[in-house]
Design a protein around this nucleic acid. Structure first.
Length: 856
RNA sequence: GCGGGUGUGGCGGAAUGGUAUACGCAACGGACUUAAAAUCCGUGGAGCGAGAGCUUAUGAGGGUUCAACUCCCUCCACCCGCACCA
């Protein structure tokens, strides 16, 4: 028996052996079923901490488990290397983004390697490398040809002090995060991808994605936001009446037209701009609206404000009735026509607006059981069903009938038409930033926008840029943008915008299938063999944007002939985060967990000066709050197996898990228990004879062993890793108790099964114990155990007996016993007799092998 | 504001509408030890009771059912996303 498990030496040794034997390197092999397991790749932000571990551990389990089941498993890793933090670091630490990014990648790769993941490192990709991004520049040129990319004006957050475009997260309370200046809305010509061309297809495709969580599909469905309604035109009342100006609105509730009490347009509506030309107060109101950020959350939470333009429109169905036109800050130019009519009685926002500006509120839909005379609207709009009233020719119709009637009349009068609208907007991919992939087009004074010739790709980023100047460093570069027009050869300028970093992450899953290809993004045969990804694992925060963009990109690539399928990710799992307590010192500064300890009285104190420390909320591990646990320390003291075990134990994989000192201690103790259990096994050489009782216990043990195989296999298939850990405890506890039986054959079967079952979760110690049990072949090359169905079967079951739904007794019955016999046995049970207290049962419900409920 | 989710012992959590609290952590009692740590054995929702046992409990409040953590309605709290963070 070995006395102690040397975790550091053991983990390092097996990682070396796996690497030396290229255990996880894969190539296309048509003789085996393939399995593509993918973890969302990391942004190289600095150091890896245990908060990052969960995603990789779960993907690793899937990869190892599927491999044991005989699949040819692709499990790659790479770096989502473009992004804003690199530019912030450049400004703050004067480090060039290239250097900062590559240094971080190096550190994080080292961290990833000590986790002992079953990754094919030969396929590593880095998105900021020209070898990677040149292919997406080619894709963009293809998208241009296919009409999937185009330019239009769109609004950005503009910091007038820094002369730069700000991300929504860089706008704090309407001000730039660094300059503190009030931000402005500025219109820029930007590149867009036509994701809306695929709106219906992306929506329909969700039905086929049965390997995705229902909630993510719902979120995408809502994001696409298909809604049927009608677009129609109001005539604008004007003094010089004959110019016949019109205002087009979109509504999903044309049935409520008789309840309309105002019309509202977006501050960015062309009509608003037109009115502003000779009205200073309107210009000011629009400017005020534009001083909040551009994000939906900011716009929607801002106080609802309107400006009465004094303009009026004619009601389309009520002769001589007019509606006032407001400019309102809650009407979005991007959605519909940028103009709406407000029906306060049946829309809460319209009602709030109407009350504020004293506009009429007329109910036009009332619940079936209400009387139109007495029905009135207070502070809450009525959005339910019912029939029409106060609506002329619509009266007494249902909502659906009324909608149809209005559409019919509008179409007949050529004033409008039924139309389907999507909330989904085209994907704006232009970013006025340095650290991204350059958009490969040239602006020529004569030819206009001209794509860069394919032979001239990649358009690489200039290295010598200045981050101290305000504005976009590429645009500021003295020479980089100067080029000649690919068509007319006259002097021209390069596009200085770069791609949104979601561009890189929209196709990286395909690049992994052919990472070294210099000619094209990936080979069609290779992508056809490996893709789509069979199991994708990542955070719920990517539920909509990244995942929707990647789904769109796949369709766009299909249209350009790169591949033959629509969906990039067959199955998706969204894992919860690792959370940790936060600490602040008496100055209110965040402290790292290692700076804090418990004082003699149990209070938290700062190690350096014993000053008091307050513990804050348990939050997602993040550098800014310093509640991070580094990997090295954990690896040094407990090993990665213990860490992997901790992030999987207890909490279900899709919920958060808390990292605590006690938790890692507990995991470490269990690792050691497993070590002692297996290494203390010393088979006797002589033949053993067992008593009847011993044979019975051995039978029980074998039943437990095979139940464990069955349970844990099922747990892995269903992503119930926390239950797999619980079931591992189950079998190891049973084996510990069984030790006393001295039954070597059954004990060996049990221990070997245990080691095979633990392998995907805690691979290092499993490999070590497998060797200790006398196996020469690597455990990573050993097939997954199969449960013996005859050993799984049981002949008796415990059945609960309830009286009026309350548990009164349990009895043991033969499995699948006759219902009548079960009922009779239950009623004869003394405890039941007592509970019945002489009353006779009115009804007895027998659920076979489970429960019997006696109703009196 | 809109959309999506979560809520069960002291703690993390388990439970095809069918014995609520599996498994683990912490705690307590015991063994070993000069002692401690480690390890091993045992106890354990809460309340009442000497005890057999009874009552009560899955965020709050209603409902459906022989039976509800599970299904339905209302509410509360927290978390995620909202299009230039990744």
């Amino acid at each position: 028996m070995q006395d102690r498990y040397n975790v550091k030496e053991t983990e390092a040794r097996w990682q070396k052996i796996w690497e030396e034997r290229c255990a996880f390197k894969v190539t296309e092999d048509k003789s085996k079923p393939k399995f593509y397991a993918l973890a969302m790749f990391p942004y190289p932000s600095g150091k890896l901490h245990v908060g990052h571990m969960r995603n990789y551990t779960m993907t690793d389990i899937v990869a190892r488990y599927k491999r044991a089941q005989g699949y040819n498993v692709l499990n790659p890793m790479g770096w989502d290397a473009f992004g804003l933090p690199a530019e912030n670091a450049a400004i703050e630490n004067k480090t060039h983004p290239t250097k900062w990014t590559h240094t971080n990648i190096e550190t994080m790769k080292k961290d990833l390697k000590i986790m002992g993941l079953a990754i094919d490192w030969s396929r590593e990709i880095t998105t900021c490398a020209p070898e990677y991004y040149k292919h997406e520049q080619k894709f963009f040129l293809d998208f241009l040809k296919e009409g999937l990319a185009y330019q239009k004006e769109s609004v950005v957050n503009w910091d007038p002090v820094e002369n730069t475009v700000l991300a929504n997260e860089q706008v704090v309370d309407g001000r730039g995060w660094r300059s503190g200046a009030m931000i402005e809305h500025k219109k820029l010509t930007q590149w867009f991808l036509k994701i809306t061309d695929f709106a219906d297809d992306l929506l329909d495709g969700l039905n086929q994605l049965d390997g995705w969580p229902e909630k993510v599909r719902l979120m995408q469905e809502n994001w696409i936001g298909k809604s049927k309604g009608v677009k129609f035109k109001f005539d604008i009342v004007s003094d010089s009446d004959d110019d016949g100006r019109e205002l087009e609105v979109f509504t999903t509730r044309p049935d409520t037209i008789f309840g309309a009490s105002f019309v509202a347009i977006s501050p960015n509506h062309p009509l608003a701009a037109k009115l502003a030309t000779d009205r200073k107060d309107i210009t000011e109101f629009i400017a005020e609206c534009n001083r909040s950020g551009t994000s939906a959350a900011m716009l929607e939470t801002a106080e609802k404000k309107g400006f009465d333009t004094e303009l009026e429109v004619r009601h389309p169905f009520v002769k001589d009735a007019t509606l006032r036109v407001f400019i309102a800050n809650f009407v979005l130019m991007d959605y519909g026509t940028g103009a709406i009519f407000g029906c306060p009685a049946h829309d809460q926002r319209d009602l709030d607006f109407a009350r504020k500006y004293n506009l009429p509120v007329l109910p036009v839909v009332i619940p079936e059981d209400k009387d139109p005379e007495s029905f009135s609207i207070g502070t809450e709009a009525y959005t339910g069903g019912g029939r029409l009233c106060n609506s002329d020719f619509l009266n007494d119709l249902s909502i659906e009938e009324a909608k149809a009637e209005i559409i019919k009349r509008l179409e007949k009068a050529e004033k409008g038409e039924g139309s389907t609208l999507y909330r989904l907007r085209d994907w704006g991919v232009s970013r006025q930033r340095y650290w991204g992939c350059p958009i490969p087009v040239v602006h020529c004074p004569k030819c206009g926008v001209v794509p860069v010739a394919e032979k001239d790709l990649p358009v690489t980023l200039p290295e010598d840029v200045d981050f101290n100047e305000s504005g976009n460093p590429i645009a500021n570069h003295p020479t980089w943008k100067k080029t000649e027009c690919p068509t007319c050869k006259n002097p021209a300028e390069r596009e200085t915008d770069t791609f949104d970093t979601f561009f890189e992450s929209s196709w990286y899953q395909f690049r992994y299938t052919d990472p070294q290809n210099t000619v094209r993004g990936f080979d069609k045969d290779k992508v056809s063999y490996w893709a789509p990804v069979d199991q994708y694992i990542g955070g719920i925060e990517h539920a909509v944007m990244h995942l929707l963009y990647a789904r769109f990109f796949t369709r766009a690539l299909k249209k350009c002939g790169y591949l033959d399928f629509d969906e990039p990710f067959k199955a998706l799992f969204t894992q919860g985060m690792v959370v940790h307590e936060t600490y602040k010192d008496n100055q209110g500064k965040w402290l790292y967990p290692e700076e804090v300890e418990h004082g003699s009285d149990g209070q938290l104190i700062k190690k350096s000066d014993s000053s008091p420390v307050t513990s804050g909320r348990i939050e997602k591990m993040s550098k800014s709050r310093k509640n991070v646990i580094g990997l090295e320390g954990v690896s040094e003291n407990y090993g990665m197996d213990a860490a992997r075990l901790l992030v999987l134990s207890d909490s279900p994989p899709d919920r958060d898990v808390e990292w605590t000192e006690g938790g890692i201690e507990g995991a470490w103790k269990y690792i050691n228990r497993l070590w002692r259990l297996v290494t203390s096994f010393a088979p006797a050489k002589n033949t053993q004879i067992f008593t009847e009782r011993g044979k019975f216990r051995a039978e029980k043990m074998r039943h437990k062993i095979h139940c464990s195989i069955h349970d844990i296999t099922q747990d892995f298939d269903r992503f119930h890793f926390n239950k797999a850990v619980a079931h591992l405890h189950g079998i190891s506890n049973a084996l510990e108790n069984f030790k006393a039986e001295k039954n070597d054959a059954v004990m060996k079967e049990g221990l070997e099964t245990l080691v095979m079952l633990m392998a995907p979760i805690i691979p290092h110690i499993a490999e070590e114990l497998w060797r200790k049990l006398g196996h020469e072949e690597l455990l990573v090359n050993t097939p997954w155990p199969k449960a013996n169905s005859t050993l799984l079967a049981v002949d008796t079951v415990t059945v609960a007996i309830q009286v009026n739904g309350k548990l009164r007794a349990t009895i043991t019955l033969p499995k699948d016993v006759d219902k009548a016999l079960a009922e009779k046995t239950a009623l004869n049970e003394p405890k039941i007799q007592k509970a019945l207290d002489g009353k006779s049962p009115r009804k007895v419900i027998v659920v076979p092998n489970r429960i019997i409920n006696v109703v009196v």
